[in-house]
Every structure is written in structure tokens, then in C-alpha cells.
Design a protein around this nucleic acid. Structure first.
Lengths: 333, 333
DNA sequence: TTGTACGCGTTATCAC
DNA sequence: GTGATAACGCGTACAA
């Protein structure tokens, strides 16, 4: 009777009434004596009683409405700070869009690479409505999918696992083509994590387009962070001092590039042009504003969520979204 | 039998076994005949059976562990875009910090002002572990608190409602003092929403410090958005063309100010100095980097979450966190 | 290895 | 107005 959390029976007995009455008093039902209501409320206060949401949901909820939670599962790489990369804000915004008009809510899980396997196993057991996987590597996604088929991976994943993605490869090409068209030749790249399919695709797009133009590709590996962008740029400047353009795999890295360039006394866009990837708000906030390959993150995510809720996602389901180049002053001719 | 979502009994009967066996087969229990396991799995597949997480939690979970969800409730003002203001990313990051080492997870609700009353009533009924209220106005917070005492408001709220906040008033003063010390005199302000206590406090801090210095305060109302910062700055420039400093109530507005200033041909910091509020990553990404009154959002939030989980939050509980000035080039002398 | 029976905490439907 | 009693869907000792 001590450590146990009080239950409705405790309240009822303490108040000298039946469970039913206690329940009614608590839930503001009309047909209950005012005096009794007071008494029950007082007991609730004293005992610190809090109705168990789970039991309540089980008793109340319609079979379908009971589980109203969509799981958003993000695995954080080395420096992929969830709170600081605007990308994640856009993902959440998209989820909210997709959830609009629904009673469903989102629960957000941010896992370290180390915790991910265990946590994903646990989550795959309790997931009801479905899950959106962000940055979850292929093996883990596959395992999750086998235990819970209601998922979409944001970014290509293991075979069969439903996914949605922007045209990463084309994005890489577009960036390079734009730089070439505006007169740049010594174009280097700051990659994202190479393990991730999206990072790999953007990289490939860059390399292919460079080769086709008869230019020599050169890159440094970043990690989708600002710091990564700074160090990558320093390294690239050391390796190829006469570079005249940088293509970064994400806007945050591009910001790092801008800062490293300023630190090195290079002017943007006069000496060096910079193109980012994402088309986030951040790109519009830098100075000079950043040209960026824009991906419709909110749209992609919202679409995935709606399909998930509508139970339209099946084996091999996937969507590809076009990217567009937002030209700003960081690549002005 | 048609529209109803299949339950464990359906699976069991379809597979010709008892519920227990079906349950065991599904949950990978050791003692179950391989052949039976296969059969059950097949039926699960065919029927599209998904165990009800709620019922499962009720049956499995220890009384305390059952509710593992902390509700993060954000009310969106006019232009307070959840996905684009880095502030919210930091809030979530802080929640994650506070949750670390716990089994608890966060569920994020973003409500429009219109939906808020209804949604909050609903949520106050189902909230178990507790809730963190962001941007919820005093009356609504009070109502929520009466129905569910396990909450903390991020920002001052109605009396008795537990809250945590940065030293907003002092922050306003600090910004102005810094500007004065670096030689500025015609200092104007871009306010946040005046209805919010934090916006009001920052405003008061600005006004008081100006008056004490014998300077005339002048301000325009923003809405914590970039666009708001742009239009406010344009208005201020029209009203007081010779202004030499701007104090913005949030970094995002400050970015808008930077852009409006550039558009008007004013140089920063040569012609006009700019100070933001938040100390978000954004401030370090602009060019010139933005001097900003830094508030420890992650720390505040993490602390609130931990206190909430530890059940240490009582009537009138509150915490105040110091702000510090991060001086960058937007106010260089 | 499988089935029976009970408990999880609430709400809802009846009678009274 | 109030109190038994039956769901809600699932997990799991316990017995078989």
C-alpha cells in the first residue's frame, strides 16, 4: 500500500464509494451528488491519484483510435546534432503537416548509433500506427521492417523497405552544372557521411558531372555539421589552394565553408562560389545568401506520413521528389 | 468480422490454437513448436494483425513504467513557425538531454491558437508522466494545471503554475548597455509578441535601460520570425532614419533586420549595430556573425524535464537562468 | 509444448 | 444517484 501508485479502487475505498462513482466524479459526469464529488476530489488530491492513461485508453478508445502515436525515429551520426541542423526541424514540420486533420500525434526518438539496435528492437514491438525512420542504416531498417511493416524510411534503405527520397544524384549534378555555367572550373566537394545513401548519391552526382565536363573531382568528407564544413574546407584549401567553388552536401556544412573561407581571406562569391544542399531557411540567412539545391523535405515527409496513416505503404513502396536549384548570391557571376 | 481490426483471438482461431500460444509465437517465446510458430506468423501476415500497444502496455508494463511519454506542447502564434525557428530545435534537444538515461520518450504537439483550448483539454486528460508547455498563454496553462499538476511552463505563466525562464528583463538591459558602451545612442528595438511574458520582459528591460541612460526608446512589434524582423526594420528605418543600433527580441528577427539593413544599403556594424536574443546557432552563421543575448535553452529545458520526471515539481516551483552576452562582429566597435 | 484462468486499471451498461 | 458487472486486448503463472 506504500510505494504502489494509487489506483481507482484506492480512491473509491478511501472515499467510501464504488469504483463507478469515483470514476464518474473524476470525469465530471453529470449524475453524481455534489457532496460525493467533493469528497472524491479531496481523496484524489490527498492520495495524489492520477488515472492511468493506458488503462483509460484501453477502456475508452475505439479499436482504431486507441493508438494515436506515430513514431519518428532518428539515429544520430557522429555530429548530426538533431537540435541544431535545420533539416530536422523541417522533418518535424512535415510530419505535423501530414498529421493535420488527424487525431494522430508524433513521438520523437533520437538515438545514438550505439543505442539504436536495442532501442529499435524495443520500438518495433510497441509501434502501432507506424514509424518514420530517419538516418537508420539499412540493416537496422530491414530488421525493423520485418517486425513492423508500417514504416517509411526517409532516404533509400534496404531492399523492400519503403522509402522516400529527393533526387540526390541529380542534385549533385545540378549544383556542379550551375557552377560550371557561371564560370567555375576548380570545383571541390564537401561530402556528407558516405555510409548514408543520400550522401553517397550526392557524391556520385558531383563526381559524374565533373568527369563528364572533363574536370578533376576532389572532395573531403564532412559529417553534415558546421564544424565538419569548416575543417573540410581548410583541408581542401590546403590541398587545392586555387579552388574557385565548393559544393557542400548540406547547408550547414556550406555555412561552415563560408566561415572557413572568410577566415582564409577568400571572398564569396568573388574568389570562391559556394553551393549548399537542402534549401533550408539557413541558406537565406547567411551573408551572402547561399545558393542551394533545395529538397522539399516538408512535402516528402508529409506525404510519407499520410500514406502511412492511410495504410497505403506496401513492400517496395517509394517516392522520389525533384530538387530545384535556389540561386542566391553565393554563386553570383 | 469485416472492418474490425483483427485481434489476438482472431489470429488464434484462424491458426487453430489458443490465445496463449498465439501470443507466445508472436513474441518469440522459446517454448513453442516451430511448426506452430510458422502457422501463426502466416496468419498474422494474412490478417494484417498488429498487436494493440495499449493493451500490451497495460498487461505488461509495471504500474510506473506504463506511461513512458512526456508531452511537449507548443502553441504556435501567428508566425512562430515551429520548424524554422532554431529555438524549438534547442527545446527538443534539451528535452532529449533531460530524458537521457530514462525510458521516457517525448511526444510533440504543435497547436494553432484556435485548436489549443480543445486540444489542451483533451491532453490534460491523457497526460501521464507530465507535460512541458511552450508558448501556452496563462489562462490555458492554468486550466491545464488544474487538471494535471505535472507540468512546467517554459516561460512565466499564471500564478502557481510551475515555470522556468531566462532572465529576460536583464537580457534586455544587457543588450542595451553593451550597445551604449560601444558608442551607440539611437538604439531601437524589435519586440517579440507582447502578449508573451518573455516578450514583455525583454521589452521592459530595453525600455528601462534606455530611460536610465537618458535615451529615447523606440520599437516596432515583431513576431519572432524573420519576416517580422524585416518589416519591423523597414518601419523603424522609415521612422528614425538615423538609427545606429537594433536590439531584436530573437535571433531570427535579428537575421531579418540584417537583411533589411543590407537591402537599405546600411553596413553592419559600421552604420548600424545589431544584437539578437537567444544565442542560437543561427547567430554564428550570419555574416557578420551576430552578437546575441544567449539563453541556455537546452539547459533550462533539460532541467525542467528532469525535475518533472523526478516528481519534484510542486506549486509555485520555478527556476530562473542567467543570460550571457555573446559578442560577435555585428556590434564591433 | 499447449491450454485455462486471472490480472492490468478504466470506462460503460445496466439494473436498482 | 449509485453500485455490481462486463468489456477493452493482451501477457503469463499455473496446471495439464
Amino acid at each position: 500500500m506504500q510505494g504502489r501508485r494509487p489506483t481507482l479502487v484506492d480512491v473509491a475505498t478511501a472515499a467510501g464509494v464504488s469504483r463507478s462513482t469515483a470514476s464518474r466524479a473524476i470525469n465530471d459526469h453529470p449524475r453524481v451528488a455534489p457532496e460525493v464529488r467533493q469528497r472524491v476530489r479531496k481523496v484524489v488530491e490527498e492520495l495524489g491519484y492520477r488515472p492511468d492513461p493506458t488503462a483509460r485508453a484501453l477502456a475508452t478508445g475505439a479499436p482504431g483510435r486507441r493508438t494515436d502515436t506515430l513514431e519518428i525515429i532518428v539515429v544520430e551520426g557522429c555530429a548530426t546534432a538533431f537540435g541544431s541542423n535545420p533539416f530536422y526541424g523541417r522533418v518535424l514540420e512535415g510530419v505535423l503537416d501530414g498529421l493535420r486533420g488527424t487525431e494522430a500525434r508524433m513521438r520523437v526518438h533520437v538515438l545514438s548509433v550505439a543505442d539504436a539496435p536495442r532501442a529499435l528492437d524495443e520500438l518495433s514491438r510497441t509501434t502501432g500506427l507506424g514509424a518514420l525512420l530517419v538516418n537508420v542504416d539499412a540493416p537496422l531498417a530491414k530488421r525493423f521492417y520485418e517486425r513492423c511493416p508500417r514504416i517509411v524510411s526517409l532516404g533509400r534503405s534496404a531492399p523492400f523497405v519503403p522509402f522516400t527520397e529527393p533526387e540526390n544524384l541529380r542534385g549533385g549534378r545540378t549544383a556542379v552544372r550551375h557552377l560550371i555555367e557561371t564560370g567555375r572550373r576548380r570545383i571541390v566537394a564537401i561530402d556528407g557521411r558516405r555510409q548514408s545513401p543520400c550522401g553517397a548519391d550526392r557524391h556520385t552526382g558531383y563526381v559524374n558531372q565533373m568527369r563528364e565536363a572533363g574536370l578533376r573531382p576532389l572532395w573531403a568528407v564532412g559529417d553534415y555539421s558546421r564544424e565538419g564544413g569548416v575543417t573540410a574546407t581548410r583541408r581542401l584549401l590546403a590541398e587545392q589552394p586555387d579552388l574557385d567553388a565548393i559544393f557542400a552536401a548540406c547547408d550547414l556544412s556550406a555555412v561552415g565553408a563560408l566561415q572557413a573561407l572568410a577566415e582564409a581571406g577568400r571572398r564569396v562569391p568573388d574568389d570562391v562560389a559556394v553551393v549548399g544542399f537542402d534549401g533550408s531557411l539557413l541558406a537565406a540567412c547567411t551573408n551572402p545568401p547561399l545558393t542551394s539545391v533545395a529538397q522539399p523535405v516538408e512535402e516528402m515527409t508529409a506525404n510519407a506520413v499520410r500514406q502511412l496513416l492511410a495504410n497505403q505503404v506496401t513492400d517496395r513502396w517509394y517516392r522520389s521528389f525533384p530538387v530545384t536549384l535556389s540561386v542566391r548570391q553565393s554563386t553570383a557571376a
